[in-house]
Design a protein around this nucleic acid. Structure first.
Lengths: 130, 130
DNA sequence: GTTTGATCCTATAGTTACTACAGGGTGCAT
DNA sequence: ATGCACCCTGTAGTAACTATAGGATCAAAC
């Protein structure tokens, strides 16, 4: 498939797709005789992963590391363990933060339905843990 | 407190703090006679919220909207409900994505400990929901 | 068979959010 | 009074994306 079809299928801008290739997140696809990029199902699977992970605040650099866990199956257990563990801690923190933020937004909406907006404590929800 | 102390207390770069003020996320603090920014406890509470929310992938624009829920307590219930609900859906999606990604990393580490690295299915974890 | 329009190519410049640096003022401590 | 750490404004750099320019390719319509 050509870049336009891939971009559409993954709701990504064409320029962003090319950008990922330049950065080494998407392997360079085959080219047609007229030099058009010709993507396969591996690209189609990989791109949504990148998009979602980006949306979750992972940098392209962090993503490259995670994708290498997938690409180089022959890596040492220590390497896999180290990389995965580091990201696991980061992910847990993010889930925690999102969960507390979620509760406060939920409470806000609930208070609203009872006609009493009350004090908004959004800021406190993400206050630093001591 | 001066900007350096605030930055240190919130693990933020001094330049980033000034940037948030320019963007309207942090209210301009009082100034000393020598024109130094003089922050109070409200700034000290607000900044960690901004930092965490940024880390979760919220844009400065989205943050400004969320912070207005907190600042303008006199907003209409409909406005609060609308803004909060939109962000709630976004947050739920993020929690879902992080949870599935977390499981796969966890499985990878587990497999590692049993000496059988096995196939890495990270990419599939964030595959599109149909 | 050529013209129109959509899509592709590369390359460059703009945007957002942050970071770094330049050039200069402030304030305390030795 | 001379460092030295900190503050100020302003500008320029980075990362990741987005937009635009200038041109090639291809399918379809006339």
């Amino acid at each position: 498939m050509k870049i336009g079809a891939l971009a559409k299928a993954t709701k990504t801008k064409v320029e962003t797709v090319r950008n990922y290739e330049k950065f080494g997140l998407l392997p360079p696809p085959a080219r047609t005789t007229s030099n058009y990029r010709d993507y396969g199902s591996d690209h189609l699977a990989r791109l949504p992963f990148i998009r979602r992970a980006r949306n979750l605040g992972f940098t392209l650099k962090a993503l490259r590391e995670l994708l290498e866990l997938s690409d180089n199956q022959d890596q040492s257990c220590e390497a896999v363990d180290d990389i995965a563990s580091r990201h696991l801690a980061e992910i847990d923190q993010k889930i925690d933060d999102l969960t507390t933020l979620r509760s406060e937004l939920d409470r806000l909406i609930g208070a609203c339905q009872h006609g009493t907006v009350g004090e908004c404590k959004i800021i406190e929800t993400l206050a630093p843990r001591i």
